[in-house]
Computed example of a mutant assay.
Amino acid sequence: MKKKIYYLVKRYKLFLIVFIILILVIIFEKNTGLRAFNSVKDSFFQMLSVLPPIMIILGLMDEWISRESMMKYMGDDSGIMGIAIAITFAAFAAGPMYAAFPFTAVLLKKGVKFTNVIIFMNAWCVIKISTLLFEISSLGYKFTFYRLLIDFVGVIAMGYLVNYFVMKVGKEDKILSSYMKEDV
């Protein structure tokens, strides 16, 4: 029983610390604490309204789309087609950024090229059709076109840069671990 409690405290340490701080703020600064609590409560309920539909879509995607298909269209040899699919998925997506993380887990599980996963995540943040429609009506076609053009280039460049640096660090880790084995 003690091991189970220790495990739970260790696992949820950050949550418990923040919760205790929130209680202390409510005790010493009631108005500030209640505003903070209401903000946390609103964010929690917003998250609960977004995540179940996303989990259903992910479950269907996981079952209906085979790993071979995902690897064919978005895998290592996908080229421009993989980039286009990643950007299209993200452009039609709805929800905040934290909703993209379960999608990325499924994409990685299905064998999607890491560059395409990063492109998907970046495009989720900056290239959404709902945002584009609002932006056109508020800021005009010209601004939206130039921002979108810069975003396309930036999203693709960021995907390749992140992939390059991750692979570089991965190679250094392999080299370091081989040195460490030699010393032993």
Rank of each mutant, 00 (worst) to 15 (best):
R67Y: 11
G33E: 13
V9H: 00
M1D: 15
L176C: 15
G154S: 00
I65S: 10
G111L: 07
A36P: 15
V112S: 06
D183G: 09
K168R: 09
M167F: 11
Y179T: 14
V40L: 05
K181D: 15
E68N: 12
L22C: 05
V162N: 06
L60Q: 11
M74E: 15
I56S: 07
K109M: 05
D76T: 13
L161D: 09
K128R: 10
A123M: 09
T115P: 10
K110A: 01
E29Y: 03
V9I: 13
Y6T: 15
M55Q: 09
G111P: 10
V112T: 12
A90Q: 04
S177A: 13
G95A: 02
M180R: 14
L148D: 07
D62R: 10
V40R: 01
I17W: 03
Y98W: 02
G111M: 11
P96W: 00
L22W: 01
K128N: 11
G140K: 03
T104Q: 00
K10L: 09
I83G: 03
V50H: 07
V25E: 06
A99Q: 05
I23R: 00
K181T: 15
N116D: 14
G82V: 14
G154A: 00
I87M: 03
Y12Q: 05
L22G: 13
K41E: 15
A93F: 04
F44K: 06
A93L: 04
D151K: 01
I136S: 02
N163I: 06
T131F: 06
G159I: 10
M167P: 11
K113H: 07
A93Q: 06
I129R: 03
G82I: 14
I5C: 04
N163Q: 03
F134Y: 08
Y179W: 14
A93K: 05
M167S: 13
I150E: 02
F134E: 11
V106H: 01
I57V: 15
L148Q: 04
K110T: 12
K174H: 12
T131W: 04
L132R: 08
V155E: 02
V169F: 12
S137D: 06
V166D: 15
I85A: 05
Y7R: 11
F134L: 13
N163A: 01
L48Q: 12
Y146M: 01
A86Y: 05
Y12S: 04
I20G: 10
I136Y: 01
V18Q: 09
V106F: 00
I17C: 01
K3L: 09
N38E: 12
S49H: 11
F114Y: 03
F101W: 01
V126Y: 07
Q46V: 14
L51Q: 05
D42P: 15
I87Q: 01
I26C: 01
I83C: 02
A36L: 13
N31L: 07
F28I: 12
S177M: 15
F15T: 10
V25N: 03
A100V: 09
S39A: 05
A100Q: 02
Q46C: 13
